[in-house]
Simulated assay, not measured.
Amino acid sequence: MQGKKRYITLSAEQREALVEGHKRGNKATFRLRCQMILLSDRGRKIPDIADILGCNRQSVVKWLNRYENAGLEGLNTAKGPGRPAIVRIDNRKEVDQIERIVEEHPQKLDVARAQIEATLGKKMSQQTLRRLLKKTAGAGSASGAVHPSDPRKRK
């Protein structure tokens, strides 16, 4: 037995905003959700939308409900649980400052940490600082360099 057929009918401006979100949205999940709403507006059934987009029926129903209740903003991923990062990796300005300070005191992380706290006003443990440095270490770092005493890593 099938449930009642459900479609979302959009105005011209809503459709235009969803098409724009589908084309230029920052996240793939947001673009996919815009596409769900657009397919519903075109008269596609929920199981058909799920098959086309490779997701399950419950997901389609969830995002149709979120769009009806909150509009285009409802299609964004909600903030998850957990403590926010003290320093975000994508904040290049802060990460560059931290790396410069650590380069000045590479063997004394406690001194570097105190200077980071004074400069940025962000309190962190030594372990947090180490994790941050490990995440930001690239090919030019000491961890990516060839170790001269290891014969396997020589050319």
Rank of each mutant, 00 (worst) to 15 (best):
M1S: 06
Q2N: 07
K5L: 12
K5T: 12
L10T: 11
E13L: 10
R15K: 05
R15N: 06
V19W: 08
E20T: 12
F30S: 14
R31W: 01
R31E: 15
R31M: 14
L32S: 13
R33K: 02
C34Q: 07
Q35F: 00
M36Y: 14
D41M: 09
D41R: 00
R42V: 08
R42E: 15
G43N: 11
P47Q: 12
A50D: 13
L53V: 02
L53Q: 13
L53M: 10
G54V: 11
C55P: 00
Q58N: 11
V60Q: 04
V61M: 07
K62E: 13
K62C: 06
L64S: 14
E68N: 13
A70Q: 10
G71P: 06
N76V: 09
R83H: 08
A85Y: 04
A85K: 05
A85C: 04
D90G: 14
N91W: 02
K93Y: 04
E94I: 01
V95Q: 09
D96S: 15
Q97W: 00
I98D: 15
I98W: 01
I101G: 13
I101D: 15
H105A: 12
K108V: 06
R113M: 11
A114D: 15
Q115K: 06
T119A: 07
K122F: 08
M124G: 12
Q126V: 03
R130G: 05
L132P: 03
L133I: 01
L133V: 04
A139E: 14
S143E: 13
S149V: 06
S149L: 05
D150W: 00
R152W: 02
R152A: 11
R154K: 02
K155L: 08
